[in-house]
Amino acid sequence: MKSYVARRLARAVLLLFAVSVLCFLLTRLAPGSFFDEIRLNPQISPQTIAALQARYGLDEPLPLRYGRWARSVARGDFGFSIAYNTPVAQLMWAPAKHTLLLGGVAMLLCWLISIPLAVWSAAYERSWFDRGVSALTSLFISIPEIVLALALLAFAMRSHALPVGGMTSVGFDELTAWGKAVDIARHMLAPVVILVLVGTPVIVRHLRASVAEVLHAPFVEAARGCGIGGARLLFRHVLPAAANPAISLFGLSLAALLSGSLLVEVVTGWPGLGPLILDATLARDLDVVVAAAMLGAAMMIVGNFAADLLLLAADPRIRTGSPDAG
């Protein structure tokens, strides 16, 4: 087990290194640089711009810049944002927390909604409920999330029922604890609904298929023969046996926790990593972009690893590596 973790860890570090080199090169190859826009200001001289570029090392050869960047990663700064004149780690901390909050809530809701939906529609296969669920999931899978987001936003705007963007109202500090919770919930509603509408159908589909398969397995009949039925059969017997694909999916949603909501954040104005990364990309604040990509890659690794550990814990067949493990 220990050596297994060590091997995984070594592979992860290697992967991250490769990703970092790739990201670093690709971003620096993009045309334009951070200081291009102030060239349009006739009151700033090329000498001043050159001095600014030299300050941030933009005039150095790439290997040197990569080395400097790697050292800053080692220091825990993860690069330096030119726009904000601050280490990237410091800059991304607050938005990352916001993204995590949004992603976490959305993920929780996704699973809380998906599991019963999937299990019941598998249990009542080909019932009206099942048909309804599968029609809705097909519908939402085929709608791009951006369309969903815009539709919801248009609704929010028309009705003035939801705040437009942000995470808290201007008078947030003066609210009671309950008022604060309500305020955040109201701001979160639009992005969370979009994320749930986008995320749930995928989970429901996979989970429903695997639950339906398990429901036909002999051990379920055996359990019925013992008098086990209803919710206990579905949730205690069938669901764990059908969990493997769901756990892999869970790993994916864990991996997407910091990256799955970026587009929705931009559209709905949630103050997470999405708007920050978009701005940084447009402004060529490249270290921020690279750090975001690295964060995405790291989350992918963590998500996969977590899924593997969960599979190990959940499925005795994998745990012991028996030859007939399915």
Binding site: P218, E221, A222, G225, A243, D315, P316
Partner: peptide, 16 residues
């Protein structure tokens, strides 16, 4: 009570 032909599939794989 019943005993089935294929014992492997007649028991929940995720149970001890």
């Amino acid at each position: 009570q019943m005993v089935f032909q294929d014992a492997a599939t007649a028991m929940n794989p995720s149970f001890s």
